[in-house]
Protein backbone atom coordinates (compact mmCIF):
# COMPACT_ATOMS: atom_id res chain seq x y z
CA UNK A 1 0.00 0.00 0.00
CA UNK A 2 1.13 3.54 -0.70
CA UNK A 3 1.04 5.71 2.43
CA UNK A 4 1.71 9.32 3.21
CA UNK A 5 2.27 10.51 6.74
CA UNK A 6 1.40 13.81 8.38
CA UNK A 7 3.13 14.76 11.65
CA UNK A 8 1.40 17.55 13.56
CA UNK A 9 3.41 17.75 16.77
CA UNK A 10 7.00 18.55 17.72
CA UNK A 11 9.46 16.02 19.15
CA UNK A 12 9.67 15.11 22.87
CA UNK A 13 6.69 17.17 24.07
CA UNK A 14 4.38 14.75 22.32
CA UNK A 15 4.58 11.15 21.15
CA UNK A 16 3.13 11.89 17.70
CA UNK A 17 6.49 12.07 15.93
CA UNK A 18 7.75 8.87 17.62
CA UNK A 19 4.55 7.04 16.68
CA UNK A 20 4.72 8.33 13.13
CA UNK A 21 8.34 7.19 12.91
CA UNK A 22 7.56 3.73 14.27
CA UNK A 23 4.59 3.38 11.94
CA UNK A 24 6.56 4.51 8.89
CA UNK A 25 9.50 2.26 9.73
CA UNK A 26 7.25 -0.76 10.26
CA UNK A 27 5.33 -0.09 7.03
CA UNK A 28 8.54 0.21 5.02
CA UNK A 29 9.99 -2.94 6.59
CA UNK A 30 6.84 -4.78 5.53
CA UNK A 31 7.39 -3.65 1.96
CA UNK A 32 4.83 -0.85 1.82
CA UNK A 33 5.61 2.42 0.13
CA UNK A 34 5.78 5.87 1.73
CA UNK A 35 5.15 8.63 -0.79
CA UNK A 36 5.95 11.47 1.61
CA UNK A 37 6.19 12.49 5.26
CA UNK A 38 4.79 15.97 5.77
CA UNK A 39 5.53 17.97 8.92
CA UNK A 40 2.93 20.57 9.88
CA UNK A 41 2.05 22.75 12.89
CA UNK A 42 4.74 22.23 15.58
CA UNK A 43 5.67 19.09 13.65
CA UNK A 44 8.11 21.27 11.70
CA UNK A 45 10.29 21.30 14.84
CA UNK A 46 11.22 17.71 14.00
CA UNK A 47 13.32 19.17 11.21
CA UNK A 48 16.02 21.05 13.14
CA UNK A 49 19.49 19.56 13.29
CA UNK A 50 20.27 21.63 16.41
CA UNK A 51 18.27 19.24 18.61
CA UNK A 52 20.51 17.77 21.34
CA UNK A 53 18.65 15.29 23.53
CA UNK A 54 20.36 13.55 26.48
CA UNK A 55 22.58 10.66 25.38
CA UNK A 56 20.41 8.00 26.99
CA UNK A 57 17.32 9.21 25.13
CA UNK A 58 16.29 8.57 21.53
CA UNK A 59 17.18 11.23 18.97
CA UNK A 60 13.89 11.85 17.17
CA UNK A 61 15.38 14.08 14.48
CA UNK A 62 18.25 11.69 13.68
CA UNK A 63 15.78 8.80 13.58
CA UNK A 64 13.93 10.51 10.73
CA UNK A 65 17.14 11.42 8.91
CA UNK A 66 18.45 7.85 9.14
CA UNK A 67 15.14 6.37 8.01
CA UNK A 68 15.11 8.77 5.07
CA UNK A 69 18.64 7.76 4.11
CA UNK A 70 17.83 4.07 4.28
CA UNK A 71 14.59 4.24 2.28
CA UNK A 72 15.06 7.48 0.33
CA UNK A 73 12.09 9.04 2.11
CA UNK A 74 10.77 12.47 1.17
CA UNK A 75 10.66 14.51 4.42
CA UNK A 76 8.87 17.80 3.80
CA UNK A 77 8.52 20.66 6.27
CA UNK A 78 5.69 23.14 5.62
CA UNK A 79 7.20 26.51 4.71
CA UNK A 80 4.54 28.70 6.36
CA UNK A 81 4.64 26.68 9.58
CA UNK A 82 8.46 26.64 9.45
CA UNK A 83 8.72 30.40 9.05
CA UNK A 84 6.55 30.93 12.12
CA UNK A 85 8.69 28.55 14.17
CA UNK A 86 12.19 29.32 12.95
CA UNK A 87 13.07 26.32 10.82
CA UNK A 88 15.43 27.65 8.15
CA UNK A 89 17.28 26.27 5.13
CA UNK A 90 19.65 28.13 2.80
CA UNK A 91 16.88 29.44 0.56
CA UNK A 92 14.74 30.66 3.45
CA UNK A 93 17.75 32.28 5.14
CA UNK A 94 18.50 34.22 1.99
CA UNK A 95 14.87 35.20 1.30
CA UNK A 96 14.18 36.33 4.85
CA UNK A 97 17.57 37.76 5.76
CA UNK A 98 18.39 35.25 8.49
CA UNK A 99 21.94 34.75 9.75
CA UNK A 100 21.77 30.97 10.19
CA UNK A 101 20.11 27.76 9.05
CA UNK A 102 19.06 24.74 11.08
CA UNK A 103 17.33 22.32 8.71
CA UNK A 104 18.31 18.71 9.43
CA UNK A 105 19.81 16.46 6.73
CA UNK A 106 17.27 14.86 4.38
CA UNK A 107 14.53 17.36 5.30
CA UNK A 108 13.38 19.97 2.81
CA UNK A 109 11.11 23.00 3.14
CA UNK A 110 8.19 23.31 0.74
CA UNK A 111 4.56 24.38 0.49
CA UNK A 112 1.22 22.97 1.60
CA UNK A 113 0.62 21.84 -1.97
CA UNK A 114 2.99 18.99 -1.14
CA UNK A 115 0.59 17.79 1.54
CA UNK A 116 -2.41 17.99 -0.76
CA UNK A 117 -0.49 16.23 -3.52
CA UNK A 118 0.51 13.49 -1.05
CA UNK A 119 -3.14 13.00 -0.09
CA UNK A 120 -4.13 12.72 -3.75
CA UNK A 121 -1.31 10.38 -4.74
CA UNK A 122 -1.43 8.02 -1.74
CA UNK A 123 -3.93 5.33 -0.88
CA UNK A 124 -3.84 6.38 2.78
CA UNK A 125 -2.89 9.59 4.53
CA UNK A 126 -2.15 8.80 8.17
CA UNK A 127 -2.19 11.79 10.52
CA UNK A 128 -0.25 11.73 13.80
CA UNK A 129 -1.11 14.29 16.46
CA UNK A 130 -3.68 15.07 19.11
Amino acid sequence: MKFSIQVNEGPYQHQASDSAYQFTKAALEKGHECFRVFFYHDGVLNGTRLTTPPQDDRNVVNNWTELAEKYDLDLVVCVAAAQRRGIVDDGEAERNGKDATNIAPRFRISGLGQLVEAAIQSERLVVFGD
Binding site: Y40, A80, G111, L112, G113, V116, E117, I120
Partner: peptide, 14 residues
Amino acid sequence: ESLEVVLIAAAFEQ
Protein backbone atom coordinates in the same frame (compact mmCIF):
# COMPACT_ATOMS: atom_id res chain seq x y z
CA GLU B 1 -3.38 26.43 10.06
CA SER B 2 -6.18 24.01 9.11
CA LEU B 3 -7.84 26.81 7.19
CA GLU B 4 -4.61 27.32 5.25
CA VAL B 5 -4.70 23.69 4.10
CA VAL B 6 -8.38 24.03 3.12
CA LEU B 7 -7.54 26.94 0.82
CA ILE B 8 -4.68 25.04 -0.82
CA ALA B 9 -6.78 21.87 -1.26
CA ALA B 10 -9.52 23.92 -2.93
CA ALA B 11 -6.90 25.41 -5.25
CA PHE B 12 -5.98 21.84 -6.24
CA GLU B 13 -9.60 21.42 -7.39
CA GLN B 14 -10.48 18.69 -4.93
